[in-house]
């Protein structure tokens, strides 16, 4: 066969072989990745999509540093059970400013794409400090050091500058005030909060996230980040949860205790409310 005869000649030339490998292997990537940058429909446009505040960005860095993404996804798939469990499915625009994205690949713990606002700050702080204090069966590691480590805010302007270089619309004012904005967000004070709100929007959370108003800890940053997840844009909540949803083979549980199961789900998947009241 001429194909094999041709190859018989090709394999005598190392450079020819190398060029062949490069050519053949690059087709797939070029065909699949390059269009994602040029086709406009790939990412919805949302003028109201806001950027991370410096404190949230620092929290995101801690989320990456501690490897949270290895056990938690941030991507609600277009499947009925996921939308019912977590909330509206994720849109591409929501991770538009995520360098890199943290969609994740494993759910040892639940998806976090819609976790913002689901639990109180106090719940998040206690839970990160020792998950088993709130959820005895949890297997999540305890992150106690977040509460005792002050947040390094000095290099935040550099972080915002780097983000701007890769295309995130931070303006000069945001960059110049990055460190003080981070401080302001975790230290409730009407004056500095007004500046922060002017720069990042009225909806920006300004609270002592970890319950310690005098010091900005890594816990502040982490909780501030978790509380904004799924809240950078309202678009997913406005998109009609359409019939387009893929229905998985639904497994019906036909035992008598289904009523009890519903109650259990309600308690366990939204313990936030209950605990919030306890903490407050």
């Amino acid at each position: 066969m001429p194909l094999f005869r041709g190859h018989y000649r090709l394999e005598k030339h190392s450079i020819g072989l190398a060029l062949g490998i490069i050519a053949v292997s690059s087709i797939g990537g070029i065909m699949e990745i390059a269009p994602l940058f040029t086709i406009d429909e790939t990412v919805q446009s949302d003028p109201d999509m806001r950027v991370y505040t410096p404190l949230e960005l620092a929290g995101r860095h801690i989320y990456m540093r501690e490897g949270c993404y290895a056990c938690h996804s941030q991507m609600v798939r277009t499947l009925r059970d996921e939308v019912e469990r977590y909330g509206p499915y994720s849109l591409a625009v929501e991770s538009q400013y995520d360098h890199p994205m943290l969609w994740g690949s494993k759910r040892t713990g639940p998806d976090l794409a819609r976790v913002g606002g689901k639990y109180s700050d106090a719940w998040q702080t206690l839970h990160l400090y020792n998950p088993r204090d709130l959820v005895p069966e949890s297997i999540m590691p305890a992150y106690r050091w977040l509460l005792r480590t002050p947040l390094d805010m000095s290099d935040l302007p550099g972080h915002l500058t780097a983000m701007r270089r890769v295309g995130v619309p931070y303006d000069d004012e945001m960059i110049a005030n990055a460190a003080s904005d981070a401080h302001a967000q975790a230290t409730p004070d009407p004056e500095s909060a007004a500046e922060l709100h002017a720069r990042y929007g009225e909806a920006t959370n300004v609270r002592a996230f970890d319950g310690l108003p005098d010091v900005v800890t890594e816990m502040d940053a982490m909780v501030a980040y978790l509380q904004i997840l799924g809240r950078l844009t309202e678009l997913p909540y406005e998109t009609p949860v359409a019939e387009e949803l893929e229905e998985p083979e639904v497994v019906e549980r036909s035992d008598a205790e289904s009523g009890a199961a519903v109650r259990r789900v309600a308690e366990r998947d939204a313990p936030g409310q209950a605990t919030t009241e306890l903490v407050r």
Binding site: L79, D81, E84, R85, G109, P110, P248, E249, V250, V251, E252, R253, S254, S258, G259, A261, V262, R264, V265, E267, R268, D269
Partner: peptide, 13 residues
């Protein structure tokens, strides 16, 4: 993805 008879998710995470 297991649902109860009443159409709700059967198991919490």
């Amino acid at each position: 993805r297991t649902y109860t008879d009443s159409g709700t998710l059967a198991y919490s995470f």
